[in-house]
Amino acid sequence: MSYDCAVSVRVPDSLEELVTGLAADPGCELLAGGTDLMVEINFGRRRPASIMSLSRVTELKGWSEDAATGELVLGGALTYTEMLQPDLAGRLPALAQAARTVGSPQIRNAGTLGGNLATASPAGDTLPVLVALDAVVVVESADGRREVPVGDFVTGAKRTALRPHDVVHSVRVPTRRTRQEFLKVGTRNAMVIAVCSAAVVVDLDSCSVRVALGSVGPVPLRAHEAEELAGEVLDWDAGGVLAGDAHRDGALERFAGLVSAASRPIDDHRSTAAYRRHAVGVCARRALERVAA
């Protein structure tokens, strides 16, 4: 048996070293939490020639608030466990809720936001949340830095706008007054890949609602017609809440139907398309009820 297995492993200490190394070796695999790449290596599905670990690049870690714009800047190496810490979870509750449904404590300690984006699985749990939050991905390379809206960053199932020598530097989340929720359906409560998910953000600054769906299409999908309906139904003068009138239940039903109609699910080993289409509507309706009740 022959193997093509020569592999060099590098652990750069800074962002500059990382992007310089990537420019010189654009075929290099980036290793963050290892929850995807190491599985491929362990099972012999991938034999990268070179690997660079992000574990010591401090510029990618943690999160901060941009003093100039007030935006939240989430590092590419931010872990799911860090998303769950009260400081950040209080600011981005939907992201924390999504992080809490990822894997197990072990996986949440290792897996990162940048990894979720770069892997771009249709079932990536943070992706619909980032879309609903209107977030922007900051991509770094030896050429410089550029910003890509999350919706444009994920271009297909496991496909992204990243070039071979790019790395996800951070994610910028605009600071607005919002109420937000994320719901996910799976076969159990832990260690489960989403059958479908929905993120709902009620934006009190723009008097609008954003709804993004996960695992019901190759990329996270916005449900624009459902958003418009929700925007009309909510009483913005009363703080973006659902009016408790006789039309409420009918409006929520129509909202769920429009969400289902916006989904583009497939049958696979995890679920049928028909169930996904139904369940994603239920998730979004419940999420809206929770944040606008």
């Binding site: 492993v9 652990v11 290793l31 939490g33 290892g34 929850t35 190491m38 599985v39 290596i41 362990n42 690997i51 670990s53 574990s55 404590p105 072990q106 996986i107 300690n109 290792a110």
Partner: peptide
């Protein structure tokens, strides 16, 4: 499961050389 720098992780997902 092991602890790496005090964090609980699955050792199968850690590249030893890093």
């Amino acid at each position: 499961s092991v602890l790496v720098d005090g964090e609980l992780v699955c050792s199968c997902l850690v590249l030893a050389a890093t």
